[in-house]
Design a protein around this nucleic acid. Sequence first.
DNA 1: GACAAGATTAGCT
DNA 2: GCTAATCTTGTCT
Length: 205
Amino acid sequence: MNFIPLTERFYLRGALVVARELIGKLLVRKIGKLTLTAKIVETEAYIGDHDPAAHSYGRITERNKIIYGIGGVAYVYFIYGNYYCFNVVSGRKGVGNAILIRAVEPVIGIEYMRKFRGKAKNDYELTNGPSKLCMSLKIDKSLNGADLTKRGAVFVSRNTKKEFNEIAVSKRIGINVGTEFPYRFFIKDNAFVTKHRFNKEIVFT
DNA sequence: GACAAGATTAGCT
DNA sequence: GCTAATCTTGTCT
């Protein structure tokens, strides 16, 4: 399979466009000779200039400075003492926008994902959450700042397979501020999307 | 140095 | 549906 990374140009656009267009693309993770692939089925946009839920909201800090860099790099953070979350940075240098990859659907290497993930009674539990997919794909802070426009340890590829994905938009999950913004994008009725009541509270499609 | 909060998950009721 | 687990980060002293 020939994976073609999305170009820098893709990432330099507005966060909402990037978040929506990342749906259906392939997240590729290389670990030595091993290549794992998963289709992105759920994303959330975080927009620093007006969004209090964004890690980039307010001043630039050691943690969020990567988000203010150029788009097309990874932002990986550690949360709740246990978990990693994987984001892609969008926009030009100086813009504090990032897209959280909330869920993916395994495509290649699912047997390795089961191994890396450990707990998971069903296949959809491998990757139906931002930290679950990091466990399955062995994503940790060593990938913070990784260049997503090159065929490196992690990147997002075009998906040449033709398929129809009906994309739904809802409010975001798991935040206490900025809850009013409909910045979550997901494939309607896809089994690998996070289970949440917002799946039925669709703002528009 | 201390302290509180957090873009989650798993396990129990 | 509810909550403990667990530690990095940012902010304040």
